[in-house]
Protein backbone atom coordinates (compact mmCIF):
# COMPACT_ATOMS: atom_id res chain seq x y z
CA UNK A 1 0.00 0.00 0.00
CA UNK A 2 1.11 3.56 -0.54
CA UNK A 3 1.45 6.13 2.20
CA UNK A 4 -1.81 7.74 1.10
CA UNK A 5 -3.66 4.43 1.26
CA UNK A 6 -2.27 3.71 4.72
CA UNK A 7 -3.37 7.15 5.77
CA UNK A 8 -6.88 6.63 4.52
CA UNK A 9 -7.08 3.22 6.11
CA UNK A 10 -5.85 4.66 9.38
CA UNK A 11 -8.43 7.44 9.34
CA UNK A 12 -11.26 4.98 8.72
CA UNK A 13 -9.97 2.62 11.38
CA UNK A 14 -9.67 5.33 14.03
CA UNK A 15 -13.15 6.62 13.22
CA UNK A 16 -14.60 3.10 13.39
CA UNK A 17 -12.79 2.39 16.65
CA UNK A 18 -14.32 5.55 18.11
CA UNK A 19 -17.79 4.34 17.15
CA UNK A 20 -17.25 0.81 18.45
CA UNK A 21 -15.86 2.11 21.71
CA UNK A 22 -18.88 4.37 22.12
CA UNK A 23 -21.10 1.29 21.66
CA UNK A 24 -19.02 -0.57 24.23
CA UNK A 25 -19.66 2.30 26.62
CA UNK A 26 -23.39 2.09 25.96
CA UNK A 27 -23.32 -1.66 26.61
CA UNK A 28 -21.50 -1.16 29.89
CA UNK A 29 -23.99 1.49 30.95
CA UNK A 30 -26.78 -0.92 30.06
CA UNK A 31 -25.07 -3.54 32.22
CA UNK A 32 -25.37 -1.19 35.20
CA UNK A 33 -28.88 -0.19 34.24
CA UNK A 34 -30.23 -3.74 34.01
CA UNK A 35 -28.76 -4.54 37.38
CA UNK A 36 -30.67 -1.70 39.03
CA UNK A 37 -32.87 -3.94 41.11
CA UNK A 38 -30.68 -6.95 41.68
CA UNK A 39 -29.52 -7.84 45.15
CA UNK A 40 -25.84 -8.80 45.29
CA UNK A 41 -26.16 -12.44 46.34
CA UNK A 42 -29.04 -13.19 44.04
CA UNK A 43 -27.36 -16.20 42.47
CA UNK A 44 -26.82 -17.87 45.83
CA UNK A 45 -30.43 -17.47 46.79
CA UNK A 46 -31.82 -19.02 43.65
CA UNK A 47 -29.17 -21.69 43.36
CA UNK A 48 -31.31 -24.28 45.17
CA UNK A 49 -34.49 -23.50 43.32
CA UNK A 50 -33.81 -25.38 40.12
CA UNK A 51 -36.88 -25.73 37.94
CA UNK A 52 -38.55 -22.64 39.35
CA UNK A 53 -39.93 -20.28 36.77
CA UNK A 54 -37.39 -17.56 36.05
CA UNK A 55 -38.22 -14.42 37.98
CA UNK A 56 -37.93 -10.86 36.76
CA UNK A 57 -34.72 -10.60 38.68
CA UNK A 58 -33.24 -13.58 36.90
CA UNK A 59 -33.93 -12.00 33.54
CA UNK A 60 -32.49 -8.71 34.72
CA UNK A 61 -29.40 -10.47 35.98
CA UNK A 62 -29.05 -12.37 32.75
CA UNK A 63 -29.51 -9.24 30.68
CA UNK A 64 -27.00 -7.40 32.77
CA UNK A 65 -24.45 -10.15 32.28
CA UNK A 66 -25.09 -10.27 28.55
CA UNK A 67 -24.70 -6.48 28.28
CA UNK A 68 -21.45 -6.66 30.21
CA UNK A 69 -20.20 -9.41 27.93
CA UNK A 70 -21.10 -7.36 24.88
CA UNK A 71 -19.36 -4.35 26.40
CA UNK A 72 -16.15 -6.27 26.89
CA UNK A 73 -16.29 -7.86 23.43
CA UNK A 74 -16.86 -4.49 21.81
CA UNK A 75 -13.96 -3.05 23.81
CA UNK A 76 -11.79 -5.85 22.48
CA UNK A 77 -12.96 -5.14 18.95
CA UNK A 78 -12.34 -1.41 19.34
CA UNK A 79 -8.87 -2.23 20.59
CA UNK A 80 -8.16 -4.37 17.53
CA UNK A 81 -9.43 -1.79 15.05
CA UNK A 82 -7.61 1.03 16.82
CA UNK A 83 -4.43 -1.03 16.84
CA UNK A 84 -4.71 -1.41 13.07
CA UNK A 85 -5.37 2.31 12.72
CA UNK A 86 -2.38 3.32 14.81
CA UNK A 87 -0.06 0.89 13.02
CA UNK A 88 -1.27 2.13 9.62
CA UNK A 89 -0.66 5.67 10.75
CA UNK A 90 2.92 4.74 11.64
CA UNK A 91 3.41 3.02 8.27
CA UNK A 92 2.02 6.03 6.48
CA UNK A 93 4.35 8.46 8.24
CA UNK A 94 7.24 5.97 8.41
CA UNK A 95 7.95 6.58 12.08
CA UNK A 96 6.47 5.91 15.52
CA UNK A 97 2.83 6.94 15.47
CA UNK A 98 2.97 9.47 18.30
CA UNK A 99 4.52 12.58 16.83
CA UNK A 100 1.72 15.08 17.39
CA UNK A 101 -1.31 15.57 19.56
CA UNK A 102 -3.75 13.68 17.34
CA UNK A 103 -1.48 10.67 17.16
CA UNK A 104 -0.78 10.84 20.84
CA UNK A 105 -4.51 10.77 21.59
CA UNK A 106 -4.99 7.65 19.47
CA UNK A 107 -1.91 5.83 20.71
CA UNK A 108 -2.62 6.69 24.35
CA UNK A 109 -6.20 5.44 24.05
CA UNK A 110 -4.89 2.24 22.51
CA UNK A 111 -2.52 1.86 25.42
CA UNK A 112 -5.29 2.54 27.95
CA UNK A 113 -7.51 -0.10 26.35
CA UNK A 114 -4.59 -2.52 26.42
CA UNK A 115 -4.09 -1.86 30.12
CA UNK A 116 -7.79 -2.33 30.76
CA UNK A 117 -8.03 -5.61 28.85
CA UNK A 118 -4.90 -7.01 30.51
CA UNK A 119 -6.17 -6.05 33.95
CA UNK A 120 -9.60 -7.53 33.30
CA UNK A 121 -7.84 -10.81 32.61
CA UNK A 122 -5.56 -10.46 35.65
CA UNK A 123 -7.81 -9.04 38.34
CA UNK A 124 -11.29 -9.10 36.82
CA UNK A 125 -11.67 -5.34 36.95
CA UNK A 126 -14.41 -5.11 34.31
CA UNK A 127 -16.32 -2.91 36.75
CA UNK A 128 -14.21 0.06 35.62
CA UNK A 129 -15.34 -0.66 32.04
CA UNK A 130 -17.87 2.18 31.75
CA UNK A 131 -15.33 4.76 32.90
CA UNK A 132 -12.51 3.48 30.68
CA UNK A 133 -14.64 3.15 27.55
CA UNK A 134 -16.38 6.47 28.17
CA UNK A 135 -13.09 8.28 28.72
CA UNK A 136 -11.51 6.54 25.72
CA UNK A 137 -14.40 7.57 23.47
CA UNK A 138 -14.06 11.17 24.57
CA UNK A 139 -10.28 11.18 24.01
CA UNK A 140 -10.63 9.69 20.52
CA UNK A 141 -13.39 12.15 19.69
CA UNK A 142 -11.34 15.11 20.88
CA UNK A 143 -8.28 13.82 19.02
CA UNK A 144 -10.25 14.08 15.80
CA UNK A 145 -10.52 17.82 16.49
CA UNK A 146 -6.76 18.22 16.34
CA UNK A 147 -6.32 15.94 13.34
CA UNK A 148 -3.32 16.61 11.12
CA UNK A 149 -2.32 14.54 8.10
CA UNK A 150 0.68 12.27 8.69
CA UNK A 151 4.04 13.77 7.92
CA UNK A 152 7.65 13.70 8.95
CA UNK A 153 8.68 14.89 12.39
CA UNK A 154 9.92 18.32 13.31
CA UNK A 155 13.67 18.25 14.01
CA UNK A 156 13.37 18.38 17.80
CA UNK A 157 11.51 15.06 17.76
CA UNK A 158 14.19 13.28 15.72
CA UNK A 159 15.43 11.17 18.55
CA UNK A 160 14.96 7.70 19.90
CA UNK A 161 14.07 9.36 23.17
CA UNK A 162 10.77 10.13 21.47
CA UNK A 163 10.05 6.42 21.54
CA UNK A 164 11.18 5.88 25.13
CA UNK A 165 9.91 9.05 26.75
CA UNK A 166 6.49 9.09 25.14
CA UNK A 167 5.97 5.36 25.50
CA UNK A 168 6.72 5.68 29.20
CA UNK A 169 4.30 8.56 29.51
CA UNK A 170 1.58 6.59 27.75
CA UNK A 171 2.04 3.43 29.79
CA UNK A 172 2.00 5.26 33.09
CA UNK A 173 -0.85 7.44 31.89
CA UNK A 174 -2.92 4.35 31.09
CA UNK A 175 -2.31 2.96 34.53
CA UNK A 176 -3.11 6.33 36.08
CA UNK A 177 -6.41 6.26 34.19
CA UNK A 178 -7.29 2.84 35.56
CA UNK A 179 -6.21 4.06 39.00
CA UNK A 180 -8.41 7.13 38.70
CA UNK A 181 -11.37 5.04 37.56
CA UNK A 182 -10.89 2.70 40.50
CA UNK A 183 -10.56 5.66 42.86
CA UNK A 184 -13.86 7.12 41.66
CA UNK A 185 -15.61 3.81 42.22
CA UNK A 186 -13.88 3.46 45.55
CA UNK A 187 -15.26 6.81 46.69
CA UNK A 188 -18.76 5.94 45.49
CA UNK A 189 -18.71 2.47 46.95
CA UNK A 190 -17.14 3.41 50.27
CA UNK A 191 -19.77 6.09 50.72
CA UNK A 192 -22.55 3.67 49.83
CA UNK A 193 -21.16 1.13 52.28
CA UNK A 194 -21.37 3.72 55.03
CA UNK A 195 -24.79 5.08 54.21
CA UNK A 196 -26.85 2.32 52.61
CA UNK A 197 -28.73 0.03 54.99
CA UNK A 198 -28.33 -3.68 54.35
CA UNK A 199 -31.79 -4.18 52.84
CA UNK A 200 -31.37 -1.37 50.30
CA UNK A 201 -28.22 -2.81 48.84
CA UNK A 202 -29.41 -3.54 45.33
CA UNK A 203 -28.00 -2.60 41.98
CA UNK A 204 -24.72 -2.95 40.23
CA UNK A 205 -22.75 -1.17 42.91
CA UNK A 206 -23.29 -4.20 45.12
CA UNK A 207 -22.12 -6.66 42.51
CA UNK A 208 -18.67 -5.11 42.26
CA UNK A 209 -16.02 -5.91 44.88
CA UNK A 210 -16.08 -4.25 48.31
CA UNK A 211 -14.37 -0.87 48.61
CA UNK A 212 -11.33 -2.35 50.35
CA UNK A 213 -10.69 -4.53 47.34
CA UNK A 214 -11.18 -1.61 44.93
CA UNK A 215 -8.75 0.43 47.00
CA UNK A 216 -6.24 -2.40 46.69
CA UNK A 217 -6.56 -2.37 42.91
CA UNK A 218 -6.17 1.41 42.83
CA UNK A 219 -3.03 1.19 44.93
CA UNK A 220 -1.50 -1.52 42.79
CA UNK A 221 -1.93 0.28 39.50
CA UNK A 222 -0.59 3.47 41.02
CA UNK A 223 2.37 1.63 42.50
CA UNK A 224 3.01 0.26 39.02
CA UNK A 225 2.54 3.60 37.28
CA UNK A 226 4.53 5.83 39.62
CA UNK A 227 8.00 4.36 38.92
CA UNK A 228 7.30 4.42 35.19
CA UNK A 229 6.18 8.01 35.39
CA UNK A 230 9.32 8.78 37.38
CA UNK A 231 11.34 7.24 34.58
CA UNK A 232 9.47 8.90 31.73
CA UNK A 233 9.14 12.35 33.21
CA UNK A 234 12.19 12.70 35.43
CA UNK A 235 14.81 10.56 33.70
CA UNK A 236 14.05 10.13 30.01
CA UNK A 237 12.56 13.61 29.63
CA UNK A 238 15.50 15.50 31.10
CA UNK A 239 18.06 13.42 29.19
CA UNK A 240 16.29 14.20 25.96
CA UNK A 241 15.89 17.86 26.89
CA UNK A 242 19.63 17.95 27.46
CA UNK A 243 20.25 16.79 23.89
CA UNK A 244 17.56 18.85 22.26
CA UNK A 245 17.71 22.10 24.16
CA UNK A 246 20.94 22.02 26.07
CA UNK A 247 19.45 21.87 29.53
CA UNK A 248 17.96 18.95 31.35
CA UNK A 249 15.42 20.88 33.31
CA UNK A 250 14.16 24.34 32.47
CA UNK A 251 10.75 24.76 34.12
CA UNK A 252 9.03 24.77 30.77
CA UNK A 253 5.25 24.61 31.40
CA UNK A 254 5.12 20.99 30.34
CA UNK A 255 7.97 20.10 32.66
CA UNK A 256 6.32 21.98 35.48
CA UNK A 257 3.12 19.98 35.14
CA UNK A 258 4.95 16.68 34.79
CA UNK A 259 6.65 17.58 38.05
CA UNK A 260 3.34 18.56 39.66
CA UNK A 261 1.82 15.23 38.63
CA UNK A 262 4.81 13.42 40.09
CA UNK A 263 4.62 15.32 43.37
CA UNK A 264 0.87 14.76 43.71
CA UNK A 265 1.22 11.02 43.18
CA UNK A 266 4.08 10.94 45.69
CA UNK A 267 1.56 12.64 47.96
CA UNK A 268 -0.91 9.85 47.22
CA UNK A 269 1.59 7.19 48.25
CA UNK A 270 2.29 9.11 51.45
CA UNK A 271 -1.39 9.65 52.14
CA UNK A 272 -1.91 5.93 52.12
CA UNK A 273 0.60 5.56 54.91
CA UNK A 274 -0.80 8.44 56.96
CA UNK A 275 -3.50 7.92 59.53
CA UNK A 276 -6.57 9.96 58.68
CA UNK A 277 -5.59 10.21 55.02
CA UNK A 278 -5.93 6.60 53.99
CA UNK A 279 -8.96 5.80 51.96
CA UNK A 280 -11.07 8.78 51.00
CA UNK A 281 -8.46 11.53 51.10
CA UNK A 282 -5.91 9.36 49.33
CA UNK A 283 -8.41 8.54 46.58
CA UNK A 284 -9.13 12.23 46.11
CA UNK A 285 -5.41 12.97 45.83
CA UNK A 286 -5.14 10.25 43.19
CA UNK A 287 -7.91 11.95 41.23
CA UNK A 288 -6.16 15.29 41.52
CA UNK A 289 -3.02 13.61 40.24
CA UNK A 290 -4.88 12.32 37.22
CA UNK A 291 -6.41 15.73 36.62
CA UNK A 292 -2.95 17.30 36.54
CA UNK A 293 -1.83 14.62 34.10
CA UNK A 294 -4.74 15.29 31.75
CA UNK A 295 -4.31 19.03 32.07
CA UNK A 296 -0.71 18.65 30.96
CA UNK A 297 -1.80 17.05 27.72
CA UNK A 298 -4.82 19.19 27.01
CA UNK A 299 -4.52 22.53 28.77
CA UNK A 300 -0.81 23.02 28.39
CA UNK A 301 -0.68 21.78 24.79
CA UNK A 302 -3.48 24.01 23.65
CA UNK A 303 -3.33 27.11 25.78
CA UNK A 304 0.19 27.67 27.04
CA UNK A 305 3.13 28.05 24.72
CA UNK A 306 6.30 26.29 25.60
CA UNK A 307 9.19 24.54 23.96
CA UNK A 308 7.40 21.23 23.55
CA UNK A 309 6.79 21.34 19.82
CA UNK A 310 4.68 18.28 20.31
CA UNK A 311 1.72 20.43 20.96
CA UNK A 312 1.74 22.13 17.59
Amino acid sequence: MTAAQYEQFSNYAVASATGILALAFVAYVAQWGFARKIAPDRELVTAGGAGEAPTAEDTASERSDVAGGIGFSLTGLAWLVLLAGVIARGLSAERVPWGNMYEFGCAATLMALTAYIVLVRMWAIDWVGPIITGFGTVVLGLSALVFVPPGPLVPALHSYWLVIHVLGAMISGSAFLVGAAASVLYLVKARAERTTPEEDRVGFLWRIPPSAKIDQVAYRVHAFAFPIWTFAALIAGPIWAQYAWGRYWGWDPKEVWAFITWVVYAGYLHARATAGWKGKAAAIIALIGFATFVFNFVGINLFVSGMHSYAK
Binding site: V264, G267, H270, T274, G276, W277
Partner: peptide, 9 residues
Protein backbone atom coordinates in the same frame (compact mmCIF):
# COMPACT_ATOMS: atom_id res chain seq x y z
CA UNK B 1 4.39 11.87 57.67
CA UNK B 2 1.52 14.31 57.81
CA UNK B 3 3.89 17.23 57.31
CA UNK B 4 5.65 15.49 54.47
CA UNK B 5 2.32 14.99 52.79
CA UNK B 6 1.31 18.56 53.39
CA UNK B 7 4.61 19.90 52.06
CA UNK B 8 4.42 17.71 48.97
CA UNK B 9 0.97 19.04 48.13
Amino acid sequence: MRTALFLLL
